[in-house]
Simulated scan of single mutants.
Amino acid sequence: MNDLENEEKPKNERSVHVAEPAMTAAAMNGVAAAAALQSVFQRVNQAAEKAGRVSDQIRVVAVSKTKPISMVRQVYDAGHRSFGENYVQEIIEKAPQLPEDIEWHFIGNLQSNKVKPLLTGVPNLKMVESVDDEKIANMLDRVVGNIGRKPLKVLVQVNTSGEESKFGVEPSGCVGLAKHVKEACSNLVFSGLMTIGMADYTSTPENFKMLAKCRSEVCKELGIPEEQCELSMGMSGDFELAIELGSTNVRIGSTIFGAREYPKKK
């Protein structure tokens, strides 16, 4: 230590603290979301280990529905790249304002008249997880071809719970729809199956087991290895169980971003 470091400061000399600007609520929420993401990865790792699986085989899609771009950016800055949205209008507004290397998943119900806005508005759309009939498959196939983008990965959504409120093809129809996508839609890449478990989770194991059964039937019919057919199942309330039952793609929203913020009805 040198003499300058040993000198005592004058007693009347005070250190000056420069106040930093307070973080905005959105920035604070973004920091919390980034921290929550790391907790989710820890839980994914634990669930995979419990099932004797490798966590690298499981994709976490951060679902930012109703959340501001600033929060998405914080999670992106933490190193994450897979994000999902439920509404076409929301994803086509967010995507152009965020980095191009984000891999967007569209996970909501898709109407025919929204296909072109979705595909033209989100060039970095990686996957549509919610193909539930031949009509929407054909529309996606046609628009992908017309705009000249590379083939689009899609999942067939299966209604494994039998609830009328849920979209998706019946389990008995999943083989036919998967076959149609693979054989009749040259601009689409059939990549697997998706489902949404029951909201109260009481029948979720059965829902997930049903999707795994559907995968076996689809892969047998199409002659493809099961490891090449994704299972997108599991959300904030049940993703660990989904991983134990074979999920390769979990869609996590509120556990990362907090409760969704819908506009108050007037």
Rank of each mutant, 00 (worst) to 15 (best):
L4P: 00
E5K: 12
E5Y: 09
E7R: 15
E8Q: 15
V18I: 15
A19P: 08
E20D: 10
P21S: 12
M23G: 00
A26C: 04
M28H: 08
V31N: 11
A33F: 04
A35L: 08
S39R: 15
F41E: 11
F41D: 07
A51R: 03
R53L: 13
Q57A: 13
Q57N: 13
A62V: 04
S64Q: 03
G79T: 07
G79Q: 09
H80V: 06
R81H: 12
R81S: 06
F83K: 01
Y87P: 00
Q89D: 10
E90G: 09
A95P: 00
A95H: 01
P96K: 02
Q97G: 00
Q97I: 00
L98S: 02
L98W: 05
L98G: 01
E100Q: 12
E103I: 08
I107F: 06
I107A: 05
I107P: 03
N109Q: 15
L110Y: 08
N113H: 14
K116R: 15
P117H: 05
T120E: 14
T120A: 10
T120W: 01
P123H: 04
P123W: 04
S130Y: 03
D132L: 00
E134H: 08
K135C: 06
V143P: 05
V143Q: 02
V144Y: 03
G145R: 06
P151E: 06
L152P: 07
K153C: 15
V154M: 07
Q157A: 07
E164M: 12
S165P: 01
F167W: 09
P171R: 05
P171V: 04
P171F: 07
P171W: 10
G173V: 11
G173I: 10
K179Q: 12
K179W: 00
K182Y: 13
A184K: 15
S186W: 11
L188G: 07
G192N: 12
T195G: 08
I196A: 07
M198K: 10
D200H: 12
D200C: 12
D200N: 15
T202G: 08
N207G: 11
F208G: 03
F208D: 05
K209N: 14
K209F: 06
M210L: 14
M210P: 01
L211R: 01
L211T: 07
A212D: 11
E217Q: 14
V218H: 10
K220W: 04
G223C: 13
I224G: 11
P225C: 12
E227Q: 13
E230F: 09
E230Q: 14
L231W: 05
S232I: 08
M233A: 13
D238Q: 08
F239S: 02
F239M: 09
E240K: 05
I243D: 03
E244Y: 03
G246F: 10
G246N: 09
T248K: 06
V250M: 02
V250H: 01
V250Q: 01
I252P: 01
I252Q: 03
T255Y: 12
G258K: 03
A259P: 00
K266W: 14
